[in-house]
Nucleic acid binder design. Structure first.
Lengths: 214, 214
DNA sequence: GTCTATATCCGGATAGAC
DNA sequence: GTCTATCCGGATATAGAC
Protein backbone atom coordinates (compact mmCIF):
# COMPACT_ATOMS: atom_id res chain seq x y z
CA UNK A 1 0.00 0.00 0.00
CA UNK A 2 2.75 2.35 0.90
CA UNK A 3 4.67 1.63 -2.26
CA UNK A 4 1.46 2.00 -4.24
CA UNK A 5 0.90 5.44 -2.84
CA UNK A 6 4.51 6.37 -3.40
CA UNK A 7 4.22 5.32 -7.02
CA UNK A 8 1.11 7.43 -7.51
CA UNK A 9 2.68 10.48 -5.96
CA UNK A 10 5.76 10.05 -8.07
CA UNK A 11 3.61 9.81 -11.16
CA UNK A 12 1.77 13.03 -10.33
CA UNK A 13 5.03 14.75 -9.62
CA UNK A 14 6.46 13.71 -12.95
CA UNK A 15 3.28 14.61 -14.80
CA UNK A 16 3.13 18.10 -13.28
CA UNK A 17 6.82 18.62 -13.66
CA UNK A 18 6.55 17.77 -17.36
CA UNK A 19 3.56 20.08 -17.84
CA UNK A 20 5.54 22.89 -16.29
CA UNK A 21 8.65 22.22 -18.37
CA UNK A 22 6.65 22.21 -21.59
CA UNK A 23 4.78 25.38 -20.66
CA UNK A 24 8.03 27.03 -19.61
CA UNK A 25 9.68 26.16 -22.92
CA UNK A 26 6.88 27.82 -24.83
CA UNK A 27 6.92 30.96 -22.73
CA UNK A 28 10.70 31.29 -22.75
CA UNK A 29 10.67 31.07 -26.55
CA UNK A 30 8.12 33.84 -26.83
CA UNK A 31 9.55 36.29 -24.30
CA UNK A 32 13.08 35.25 -23.39
CA UNK A 33 14.33 34.44 -19.89
CA UNK A 34 13.89 37.83 -18.28
CA UNK A 35 10.75 38.65 -20.23
CA UNK A 36 8.92 35.52 -19.12
CA UNK A 37 6.82 35.64 -15.96
CA UNK A 38 6.21 32.70 -13.65
CA UNK A 39 2.53 33.60 -13.78
CA UNK A 40 2.38 33.12 -17.56
CA UNK A 41 4.02 29.71 -17.20
CA UNK A 42 1.56 28.79 -14.47
CA UNK A 43 -1.36 29.90 -16.62
CA UNK A 44 -0.15 27.89 -19.58
CA UNK A 45 0.42 24.81 -17.40
CA UNK A 46 -2.98 25.40 -15.77
CA UNK A 47 -1.53 25.29 -12.28
CA UNK A 48 -1.32 27.86 -9.50
CA UNK A 49 1.82 29.92 -9.57
CA UNK A 50 2.93 28.68 -6.16
CA UNK A 51 3.10 25.13 -7.51
CA UNK A 52 5.70 26.16 -10.03
CA UNK A 53 7.78 27.44 -7.16
CA UNK A 54 7.15 24.23 -5.28
CA UNK A 55 8.48 22.07 -8.12
CA UNK A 56 11.30 24.36 -9.22
CA UNK A 57 12.60 26.55 -6.45
CA UNK A 58 12.90 29.65 -8.58
CA UNK A 59 12.87 30.98 -12.13
CA UNK A 60 16.56 30.39 -12.76
CA UNK A 61 16.25 26.79 -11.62
CA UNK A 62 13.33 26.16 -13.94
CA UNK A 63 15.18 27.73 -16.85
CA UNK A 64 18.24 25.59 -16.18
CA UNK A 65 16.03 22.50 -16.18
CA UNK A 66 14.63 23.52 -19.57
CA UNK A 67 18.15 24.03 -20.91
CA UNK A 68 19.29 20.64 -19.61
CA UNK A 69 16.42 18.93 -21.39
CA UNK A 70 17.53 20.58 -24.61
CA UNK A 71 21.21 19.78 -24.26
CA UNK A 72 20.41 16.15 -23.57
CA UNK A 73 18.56 15.83 -26.87
CA UNK A 74 21.38 17.69 -28.64
CA UNK A 75 24.08 15.44 -27.28
CA UNK A 76 22.62 12.34 -28.85
CA UNK A 77 23.38 13.56 -32.36
CA UNK A 78 26.30 12.02 -34.23
CA UNK A 79 27.76 9.86 -31.49
CA UNK A 80 29.80 7.58 -33.70
CA UNK A 81 32.20 8.61 -36.43
CA UNK A 82 35.87 7.71 -36.79
CA UNK A 83 38.75 7.75 -39.22
CA UNK A 84 37.45 4.71 -41.06
CA UNK A 85 33.93 6.05 -41.58
CA UNK A 86 32.73 7.18 -44.97
CA UNK A 87 32.57 11.02 -44.96
CA UNK A 88 29.55 11.25 -47.27
CA UNK A 89 27.56 8.85 -45.10
CA UNK A 90 28.47 10.56 -41.83
CA UNK A 91 27.84 14.10 -43.08
CA UNK A 92 24.55 13.08 -44.64
CA UNK A 93 23.44 11.48 -41.41
CA UNK A 94 24.58 14.51 -39.42
CA UNK A 95 22.62 16.94 -41.57
CA UNK A 96 19.63 14.63 -41.55
CA UNK A 97 19.45 14.23 -37.77
CA UNK A 98 20.03 17.93 -37.09
CA UNK A 99 17.20 18.82 -39.50
CA UNK A 100 14.97 16.23 -37.89
CA UNK A 101 15.67 17.68 -34.46
CA UNK A 102 14.96 21.19 -35.71
CA UNK A 103 11.69 19.92 -37.12
CA UNK A 104 10.51 17.96 -34.09
CA UNK A 105 11.80 20.31 -31.39
CA UNK A 106 12.11 23.84 -32.75
CA UNK A 107 11.49 25.39 -29.34
CA UNK A 108 14.60 23.78 -27.96
CA UNK A 109 16.68 25.11 -30.80
CA UNK A 110 15.21 28.58 -30.32
CA UNK A 111 15.84 28.77 -26.59
CA UNK A 112 19.38 27.59 -27.11
CA UNK A 113 19.85 30.19 -29.85
CA UNK A 114 18.57 33.05 -27.71
CA UNK A 115 20.75 31.93 -24.85
CA UNK A 116 23.86 32.05 -27.05
CA UNK A 117 22.89 35.32 -28.71
CA UNK A 118 22.57 36.96 -25.31
CA UNK A 119 26.10 35.86 -24.45
CA UNK A 120 25.33 32.42 -23.01
CA UNK A 121 25.00 33.64 -19.40
CA UNK A 122 23.65 30.24 -18.32
CA UNK A 123 25.70 28.04 -20.65
CA UNK A 124 29.26 29.41 -20.64
CA UNK A 125 30.49 26.34 -18.84
CA UNK A 126 28.88 23.92 -21.26
CA UNK A 127 30.21 25.71 -24.33
CA UNK A 128 33.76 26.13 -23.15
CA UNK A 129 33.88 22.53 -21.91
CA UNK A 130 31.69 19.89 -23.54
CA UNK A 131 30.99 21.65 -26.80
CA UNK A 132 34.57 22.68 -27.38
CA UNK A 133 35.81 19.14 -26.82
CA UNK A 134 33.06 17.76 -29.05
CA UNK A 135 34.12 20.03 -31.92
CA UNK A 136 37.79 19.24 -31.39
CA UNK A 137 37.16 15.50 -31.57
CA UNK A 138 35.00 15.67 -34.67
CA UNK A 139 37.41 18.09 -36.34
CA UNK A 140 40.28 15.67 -35.78
CA UNK A 141 38.34 12.91 -37.52
CA UNK A 142 37.53 15.16 -40.46
CA UNK A 143 41.19 16.15 -40.66
CA UNK A 144 42.10 12.47 -40.94
CA UNK A 145 39.58 12.03 -43.76
CA UNK A 146 41.23 14.90 -45.60
CA UNK A 147 44.68 13.42 -44.98
CA UNK A 148 43.45 10.13 -46.41
CA UNK A 149 42.26 11.96 -49.52
CA UNK A 150 38.66 11.01 -48.82
CA UNK A 151 37.41 14.60 -49.24
CA UNK A 152 38.47 18.11 -50.23
CA UNK A 153 40.62 20.06 -47.80
CA UNK A 154 38.18 22.36 -46.03
CA UNK A 155 38.42 23.77 -42.52
CA UNK A 156 36.68 21.14 -40.33
CA UNK A 157 35.59 23.56 -37.61
CA UNK A 158 33.99 25.90 -40.12
CA UNK A 159 32.33 22.93 -41.77
CA UNK A 160 30.71 21.97 -38.47
CA UNK A 161 29.59 25.58 -37.93
CA UNK A 162 28.13 25.59 -41.42
CA UNK A 163 26.04 22.51 -40.74
CA UNK A 164 24.86 23.90 -37.41
CA UNK A 165 24.07 27.29 -38.91
CA UNK A 166 22.12 26.01 -41.89
CA UNK A 167 20.09 23.34 -40.12
CA UNK A 168 19.25 25.46 -37.08
CA UNK A 169 18.25 28.32 -39.34
CA UNK A 170 15.12 26.43 -40.35
CA UNK A 171 14.09 25.95 -36.72
CA UNK A 172 15.11 29.32 -35.32
CA UNK A 173 13.96 31.44 -38.24
CA UNK A 174 10.92 29.37 -39.17
CA UNK A 175 8.75 32.50 -39.02
CA UNK A 176 10.87 34.17 -41.69
CA UNK A 177 11.43 31.05 -43.78
CA UNK A 178 7.75 30.11 -43.86
CA UNK A 179 6.64 33.65 -44.57
CA UNK A 180 9.11 34.02 -47.44
CA UNK A 181 8.20 30.60 -48.82
CA UNK A 182 4.53 31.44 -48.36
CA UNK A 183 3.76 28.37 -46.26
CA UNK A 184 1.72 28.00 -43.09
CA UNK A 185 3.96 25.33 -41.58
CA UNK A 186 6.57 22.76 -42.45
CA UNK A 187 5.48 19.38 -43.77
CA UNK A 188 7.45 16.17 -44.26
CA UNK A 189 7.94 16.95 -47.94
CA UNK A 190 9.28 20.43 -47.31
CA UNK A 191 11.72 19.17 -44.70
CA UNK A 192 12.86 16.45 -47.08
CA UNK A 193 13.49 19.00 -49.83
CA UNK A 194 15.48 21.24 -47.55
CA UNK A 195 17.48 18.31 -46.20
CA UNK A 196 18.27 17.24 -49.74
CA UNK A 197 19.33 20.74 -50.71
CA UNK A 198 21.64 21.10 -47.73
CA UNK A 199 23.13 17.64 -48.18
CA UNK A 200 23.69 18.28 -51.87
CA UNK A 201 25.33 21.68 -51.35
CA UNK A 202 27.53 20.67 -48.47
CA UNK A 203 28.65 17.34 -49.91
CA UNK A 204 29.41 18.99 -53.23
CA UNK A 205 31.32 21.70 -51.39
CA UNK A 206 33.37 18.94 -49.76
CA UNK A 207 33.97 17.25 -53.11
CA UNK A 208 31.72 14.33 -52.21
CA UNK A 209 28.71 12.66 -53.79
CA UNK A 210 25.63 11.26 -52.07
CA UNK A 211 26.18 7.88 -50.41
CA UNK A 212 24.46 4.67 -51.54
CA UNK A 213 22.26 4.34 -48.49
CA UNK A 214 21.54 6.55 -45.51
CA UNK B 1 21.05 84.14 -32.96
CA UNK B 2 17.79 82.28 -33.07
CA UNK B 3 18.99 79.99 -35.82
CA UNK B 4 22.22 79.51 -33.93
CA UNK B 5 20.35 78.38 -30.85
CA UNK B 6 18.08 76.21 -32.92
CA UNK B 7 21.09 74.53 -34.49
CA UNK B 8 22.60 73.87 -31.10
CA UNK B 9 19.40 72.40 -29.77
CA UNK B 10 19.06 70.18 -32.81
CA UNK B 11 22.62 68.96 -32.30
CA UNK B 12 21.99 68.11 -28.67
CA UNK B 13 18.81 66.33 -29.60
CA UNK B 14 20.58 64.25 -32.19
CA UNK B 15 23.49 63.53 -29.88
CA UNK B 16 21.24 62.38 -27.04
CA UNK B 17 18.99 60.46 -29.38
CA UNK B 18 22.01 58.60 -30.72
CA UNK B 19 23.32 57.85 -27.24
CA UNK B 20 19.96 56.39 -26.33
CA UNK B 21 19.71 54.30 -29.49
CA UNK B 22 23.16 52.84 -28.96
CA UNK B 23 22.50 52.11 -25.30
CA UNK B 24 19.12 50.59 -26.18
CA UNK B 25 20.70 48.32 -28.79
CA UNK B 26 23.13 46.97 -26.24
CA UNK B 27 20.49 46.36 -23.60
CA UNK B 28 18.02 44.77 -26.03
CA UNK B 29 20.73 42.35 -27.16
CA UNK B 30 21.47 41.32 -23.59
CA UNK B 31 17.92 40.95 -22.29
CA UNK B 32 15.47 40.97 -25.19
CA UNK B 33 12.59 43.40 -25.68
CA UNK B 34 10.50 42.47 -22.66
CA UNK B 35 13.49 41.77 -20.44
CA UNK B 36 15.05 45.19 -21.00
CA UNK B 37 14.14 47.99 -18.60
CA UNK B 38 14.03 51.65 -19.53
CA UNK B 39 16.07 52.28 -16.39
CA UNK B 40 18.94 50.10 -17.62
CA UNK B 41 18.95 51.93 -20.96
CA UNK B 42 18.97 55.25 -19.13
CA UNK B 43 21.84 54.12 -16.91
CA UNK B 44 23.88 52.97 -19.90
CA UNK B 45 23.20 56.21 -21.77
CA UNK B 46 23.97 58.17 -18.57
CA UNK B 47 20.71 60.07 -18.73
CA UNK B 48 17.70 60.22 -16.41
CA UNK B 49 14.99 57.73 -17.26
CA UNK B 50 12.48 60.49 -17.95
CA UNK B 51 14.65 61.75 -20.80
CA UNK B 52 14.35 58.46 -22.61
CA UNK B 53 10.60 58.87 -22.44
CA UNK B 54 10.93 62.42 -23.63
CA UNK B 55 12.87 61.41 -26.77
CA UNK B 56 10.99 58.19 -27.49
CA UNK B 57 7.45 58.21 -26.23
CA UNK B 58 7.55 54.66 -24.91
CA UNK B 59 9.50 51.41 -24.95
CA UNK B 60 7.85 50.04 -28.08
CA UNK B 61 8.63 53.23 -29.97
CA UNK B 62 12.27 53.10 -28.96
CA UNK B 63 12.52 49.45 -29.95
CA UNK B 64 10.97 50.16 -33.35
CA UNK B 65 13.51 52.92 -33.89
CA UNK B 66 16.32 50.48 -33.13
CA UNK B 67 14.85 47.97 -35.57
CA UNK B 68 14.51 50.60 -38.30
CA UNK B 69 18.18 51.50 -37.94
CA UNK B 70 19.05 47.86 -38.44
CA UNK B 71 16.79 47.28 -41.43
CA UNK B 72 18.19 50.35 -43.15
CA UNK B 73 21.72 48.96 -42.97
CA UNK B 74 20.46 45.55 -44.11
CA UNK B 75 18.66 46.93 -47.14
CA UNK B 76 21.81 48.35 -48.65
CA UNK B 77 23.27 44.91 -49.28
CA UNK B 78 23.29 43.54 -52.82
CA UNK B 79 21.29 46.23 -54.55
CA UNK B 80 22.37 45.41 -58.10
CA UNK B 81 22.34 42.02 -59.75
CA UNK B 82 20.64 40.99 -62.96
CA UNK B 83 20.46 38.26 -65.58
CA UNK B 84 23.67 39.43 -67.22
CA UNK B 85 25.75 39.50 -64.03
CA UNK B 86 28.40 36.93 -63.33
CA UNK B 87 27.08 34.55 -60.62
CA UNK B 88 30.47 33.96 -58.99
CA UNK B 89 31.12 37.69 -58.68
CA UNK B 90 27.67 38.49 -57.29
CA UNK B 91 27.61 35.63 -54.78
CA UNK B 92 31.13 36.44 -53.61
CA UNK B 93 30.19 40.05 -53.10
CA UNK B 94 26.99 39.06 -51.31
CA UNK B 95 28.79 36.78 -48.86
CA UNK B 96 31.51 39.35 -48.39
CA UNK B 97 29.18 42.24 -47.54
CA UNK B 98 27.00 40.13 -45.25
CA UNK B 99 30.09 38.98 -43.34
CA UNK B 100 31.33 42.55 -43.15
CA UNK B 101 28.01 43.69 -41.73
CA UNK B 102 28.03 40.86 -39.18
CA UNK B 103 31.52 41.94 -38.17
CA UNK B 104 30.89 45.67 -37.89
CA UNK B 105 27.37 45.52 -36.47
CA UNK B 106 26.80 42.24 -34.64
CA UNK B 107 24.26 43.80 -32.28
CA UNK B 108 21.96 44.63 -35.16
CA UNK B 109 22.10 41.10 -36.41
CA UNK B 110 21.42 39.74 -32.94
CA UNK B 111 18.40 41.91 -32.26
CA UNK B 112 16.98 41.01 -35.63
CA UNK B 113 17.59 37.33 -34.92
CA UNK B 114 15.87 37.44 -31.53
CA UNK B 115 12.95 39.28 -33.03
CA UNK B 116 12.47 36.57 -35.69
CA UNK B 117 13.02 33.71 -33.23
CA UNK B 118 10.28 35.09 -31.00
CA UNK B 119 7.87 35.10 -33.93
CA UNK B 120 8.64 38.54 -35.37
CA UNK B 121 5.92 40.34 -33.37
CA UNK B 122 7.30 43.73 -34.46
CA UNK B 123 8.43 42.79 -37.98
CA UNK B 124 5.68 40.63 -39.51
CA UNK B 125 4.81 43.35 -41.97
CA UNK B 126 8.39 43.83 -43.12
CA UNK B 127 8.98 40.12 -43.63
CA UNK B 128 5.78 39.36 -45.47
CA UNK B 129 6.20 42.45 -47.65
CA UNK B 130 9.68 43.82 -48.38
CA UNK B 131 11.69 40.74 -47.57
CA UNK B 132 9.45 38.36 -49.49
CA UNK B 133 9.62 40.55 -52.58
CA UNK B 134 13.38 40.91 -52.22
CA UNK B 135 13.84 37.13 -52.15
CA UNK B 136 11.47 36.64 -55.07
CA UNK B 137 13.36 39.13 -57.22
CA UNK B 138 16.78 37.71 -56.42
CA UNK B 139 15.52 34.15 -56.88
CA UNK B 140 14.24 35.01 -60.33
CA UNK B 141 17.66 36.30 -61.33
CA UNK B 142 19.35 33.16 -60.03
CA UNK B 143 16.82 31.05 -61.93
CA UNK B 144 17.80 32.86 -65.11
CA UNK B 145 21.49 32.14 -64.44
CA UNK B 146 20.65 28.47 -64.10
CA UNK B 147 18.59 28.55 -67.30
CA UNK B 148 21.57 30.13 -69.06
CA UNK B 149 23.76 27.28 -67.81
CA UNK B 150 25.90 29.69 -65.81
CA UNK B 151 25.65 27.58 -62.65
CA UNK B 152 24.36 24.30 -61.23
CA UNK B 153 20.62 23.93 -60.74
CA UNK B 154 20.08 24.56 -57.03
CA UNK B 155 17.00 25.97 -55.31
CA UNK B 156 17.59 29.77 -55.34
CA UNK B 157 15.51 30.49 -52.24
CA UNK B 158 17.36 27.88 -50.21
CA UNK B 159 20.64 29.25 -51.52
CA UNK B 160 19.73 32.70 -50.19
CA UNK B 161 18.74 31.18 -46.85
CA UNK B 162 22.05 29.35 -46.75
CA UNK B 163 24.03 32.55 -47.23
CA UNK B 164 21.96 34.35 -44.61
CA UNK B 165 22.24 31.48 -42.15
CA UNK B 166 25.98 30.98 -42.47
CA UNK B 167 27.01 34.63 -42.43
CA UNK B 168 24.68 35.66 -39.60
CA UNK B 169 25.79 32.68 -37.58
CA UNK B 170 29.15 34.34 -36.97
CA UNK B 171 27.48 37.47 -35.64
CA UNK B 172 24.63 35.93 -33.68
CA UNK B 173 26.59 33.02 -32.22
CA UNK B 174 29.88 34.83 -31.79
CA UNK B 175 30.00 33.74 -28.14
CA UNK B 176 29.89 30.09 -29.16
CA UNK B 177 32.12 30.45 -32.20
CA UNK B 178 34.83 32.35 -30.35
CA UNK B 179 34.71 30.03 -27.35
CA UNK B 180 35.01 26.93 -29.56
CA UNK B 181 37.78 28.52 -31.61
CA UNK B 182 39.45 29.65 -28.40
CA UNK B 183 39.63 33.30 -29.40
CA UNK B 184 38.87 36.44 -27.45
CA UNK B 185 37.40 38.34 -30.36
CA UNK B 186 37.31 38.41 -34.14
CA UNK B 187 40.14 40.05 -36.05
CA UNK B 188 40.45 41.02 -39.71
CA UNK B 189 42.37 37.87 -40.48
CA UNK B 190 39.84 35.57 -38.88
CA UNK B 191 36.98 37.24 -40.71
CA UNK B 192 38.88 36.95 -43.97
CA UNK B 193 39.44 33.22 -43.39
CA UNK B 194 35.79 32.60 -42.63
CA UNK B 195 34.70 34.65 -45.62
CA UNK B 196 37.02 32.63 -47.83
CA UNK B 197 35.73 29.36 -46.44
CA UNK B 198 32.09 30.31 -47.01
CA UNK B 199 32.75 31.65 -50.48
CA UNK B 200 34.69 28.53 -51.41
CA UNK B 201 32.07 26.11 -50.09
CA UNK B 202 29.07 27.91 -51.52
CA UNK B 203 30.58 28.64 -54.92
CA UNK B 204 31.77 25.04 -55.22
CA UNK B 205 28.31 23.86 -54.20
CA UNK B 206 26.93 25.97 -57.04
CA UNK B 207 29.47 24.56 -59.48
CA UNK B 208 31.34 27.85 -59.70
CA UNK B 209 34.93 28.95 -59.18
CA UNK B 210 36.20 32.12 -57.56
CA UNK B 211 35.97 35.20 -59.77
CA UNK B 212 39.03 37.09 -61.08
CA UNK B 213 38.44 40.20 -59.00
CA UNK B 214 36.02 41.09 -56.26
C1' DG C 1 1.21 18.21 -1.97
C1' DT C 2 -1.88 22.17 -3.14
C1' DC C 3 -3.34 26.78 -3.34
C1' DT C 4 -4.76 31.60 -1.34
C1' DA C 5 -3.13 35.63 0.36
C1' DT C 6 0.42 38.70 0.91
C1' DA C 7 5.15 40.85 1.44
C1' DT C 8 8.42 43.28 -1.17
C1' DC C 9 10.33 45.14 -4.97
C1' DC C 10 10.82 46.71 -9.76
C1' DG C 11 8.59 47.87 -14.09
C1' DG C 12 6.76 51.75 -17.42
C1' DA C 13 5.04 56.03 -17.48
C1' DT C 14 4.06 60.91 -16.17
C1' DA C 15 3.40 65.37 -13.39
C1' DG C 16 5.40 69.23 -12.50
C1' DA C 17 9.53 72.03 -10.58
C1' DC C 18 13.44 73.99 -12.64
C1' DG D 1 14.78 70.64 -22.61
C1' DT D 2 16.01 68.44 -18.14
C1' DC D 3 15.30 65.84 -14.09
C1' DT D 4 13.05 64.58 -9.34
C1' DA D 5 9.33 62.56 -7.26
C1' DT D 6 5.64 59.61 -7.65
C1' DC D 7 1.73 56.66 -9.37
C1' DC D 8 0.39 52.11 -10.01
C1' DG D 9 0.48 47.67 -12.08
C1' DG D 10 2.88 43.52 -12.16
C1' DA D 11 7.04 40.81 -10.91
C1' DT D 12 9.27 37.05 -7.80
C1' DA D 13 8.85 34.71 -3.90
C1' DT D 14 6.93 32.82 0.41
C1' DA D 15 3.86 32.08 4.63
C1' DG D 16 0.60 29.46 6.13
C1' DA D 17 -4.32 27.39 5.76
C1' DC D 18 -6.04 23.30 3.84
Amino acid sequence: MTSNKKYKVGAIRERNSDRILIAAEEEFVLHGFKGTSMQSIADRAELPKANIHYYFKNKTNLYQAVLENIMTAWNEVLADMNEDSDPATVLTKFIHSKMQLSYTNPNGSKIFAMEIIQGAPHLREYISQDMRIWVKEKSAVIESWIAQGKMRAVDPTQLIFMIWATTQHYADFNTQVLEVMNRREYDDDGIQNITNFLTDMILTGCGLTAPQAV
